[in-house]
Computed example of a mutant assay.
Amino acid sequence: MEATPPTPSQMLAYLEEFRRTGAASDQLPNDIYRNFFAEILAKKTLTSAASNSLLESFDAVASNQEVPPSPTDEDVWIFGYGSLVWKADFPYIDRRRGFVWGFKRRFYQHSIDHRGIPERPGRVVTLLPGDPSQDRVYGVAYRIAASQKGAVLDHLDYREKNGYERCSLHFHEYPKTSSADGEPIQVIMYVATQANDSYAGDVWQVPCIARQIFSSAGPSGPNREYLFNLATAMEKLFPGAVDDHLGELVASVRRFIDEDEPHLLEGALLQEISVALQEGEPSHQDQAERLQKLLERSQQPGGREWLLHGQLMRKNEA
């Protein structure tokens, strides 16, 4: 059973009762944490949220439209290698699994509009040049009807506005279909080059990226959700395919969640509770209102990551 959030009156009554008993004031932050914050924030956060129904129906349902337009020679194909793999929020008339040669997928792009915010950017993927004969990136190609491609490309230009540019290359189906003649498909994809303002620079070490993902969230949700969704999609759509960078990040972020998140959240909340008790007017009513606002913020989307980021910054400064 989920914990029921306290009401402002319950918070006020607790403060007044604590003062009335004459308990040591230095114990108050710990008692408030234990009684009002710990149970609510102890719930595990999402570790994998890619839609199983979407992935399981991939080959059975080729289009996301009830009556898709008929294919024509004027259609275009869009290749997705990040969130587009599981979140195609545009109309398409066909989709296929496959890969492109000569690239490496890396979490080298800051996200300030989807999985992070300007003051706390997250990390998302882009592609780097690799060995044309060895390196391949797996993803999904979507066929866009000629009558819909203008609107879809405008939508994607906006969605990928934070540093991504269009380019064109060849896409190879996986697994190869007997009906195809083996010819690759010309696709459009979006790549964030090293020249864009949100490129992450030389902070490429997996532990650093993992910590950033672990403590970031944005309008589209927690950064960890993006990472785990991508890993789940790759595992289900491309069994046996290896992406060492993705696998190392998943393992590192899961370690942060299992080993570090509980005590980091506790430390962050104890710090914020102490501040709420000390700042402003000393009345119990004011303290109760500040504590209630802290509790509400902690439970809002991105609240957990806000606490984690702040605590990690304090530990770095110590």
Results as ranks from 00 to 15, higher is better:
Val61Tyr: 04
Gln109Ile: 00
Pro118Ile: 10
Tyr226Ile: 08
Arg95His: 03
Lys104Leu: 07
Glu66Val: 13
Ile117Tyr: 00
Asn316Ala: 15
Ile144Asn: 08
Ala141Phe: 01
Gly98Asn: 10
Asp286Ile: 02
His170Asp: 14
Trp204Met: 06
Trp101Cys: 14
Gly221His: 12
Gln278Arg: 12
Ala23Lys: 09
Thr21Gly: 01
Glu17Pro: 00
Ser63Leu: 04
Asp197Thr: 10
Asp113Pro: 01
Ile32Trp: 01
Val140Gln: 04
Phe103Ala: 06
Tyr108Met: 01
Asp73His: 09
Ile117His: 01
Glu279Pro: 03
Leu156Cys: 10
Phe36Glu: 07
Trp101Arg: 15
Gly116Arg: 10
Ala180Leu: 03
Pro8Leu: 03
Ser216Leu: 08
Phe90Arg: 11
Asn316Lys: 15
Asn35Leu: 08
Val125Trp: 13
Ser63Arg: 04
Lys176Ser: 14
Ser111Tyr: 08
Leu127Trp: 03
Gln311Asp: 01
Pro29Leu: 05
Asp181Cys: 05
Arg19Ile: 00
Leu291Glu: 12
Ser70His: 05
Cys167Gly: 11
Glu225Ala: 14
Ile273Gly: 08
Gly80Gln: 03
Leu291His: 06
Asp197Asn: 03
Ala141Met: 02
Arg123Phe: 08
Asp181Tyr: 05
Thr72His: 12
Leu249His: 10
Ala192Ser: 13
Asp154Ser: 10
Glu261Phe: 05
Cys167Leu: 14
Trp86Asn: 05
Gln278Asn: 13
Leu265Trp: 13
Arg166Leu: 15
Lys87Trp: 01
Gly122Cys: 08
Arg19Gly: 02
Lys315Gln: 15
Arg20Gly: 00
Arg106Asn: 06
Gly139Gln: 14
Asn52Phe: 14
Leu277Arg: 07
Arg255Lys: 12
Glu17His: 09
Gly303Gln: 02
Gln194Thr: 14
Ile117Lys: 07
Arg105Lys: 04
Lys87Glu: 03
Val203Thr: 11
Pro301Glu: 10
Thr232Arg: 09
Ser252Asn: 03
His170Trp: 12
Trp77Asn: 01
Gly102Pro: 04
Ala180Lys: 02
Ala24Gln: 05
His170Tyr: 13
Phe103Arg: 12
Gly303Ser: 00
Arg34Phe: 10
Gln299Glu: 01
Ile112Leu: 11
Glu305Ala: 08
Arg254His: 07
Thr21His: 02
Arg159Thr: 04
Ala141Arg: 02
Phe103Leu: 03
Val203Ala: 13
Ala38Met: 15
Asn316Gly: 15
Pro6Asn: 06
Arg211Gln: 07
Met1Tyr: 06
Ile32Gln: 01
Ser178Pro: 05
Ile257Tyr: 07
Gln10His: 06
Ala42Gln: 12
Ser216Trp: 09
Pro301Gln: 11
Tyr142Cys: 09
Ala192Gly: 15
Gly247Gln: 15
Asn196Gln: 05
Leu54Lys: 13
Leu264Asp: 13
Pro118Gln: 13
Ala251Trp: 02
Ala145Tyr: 05
Leu28Lys: 02
Lys149Tyr: 05
Gly221Asp: 08
Asn35Trp: 00
Pro6Ser: 06
Leu227Tyr: 04
Glu2Trp: 08
Val250Leu: 11
Thr232His: 10
Gln299Lys: 00
Glu2Leu: 14
Ile209Tyr: 02
Leu156Lys: 12
Arg304His: 01
Pro69Lys: 10
Ser216Val: 11
Met313Thr: 12
Arg120Glu: 02
Ala49Gln: 11
Ala151Gly: 11
Glu289Gly: 00
Lys43Ala: 12
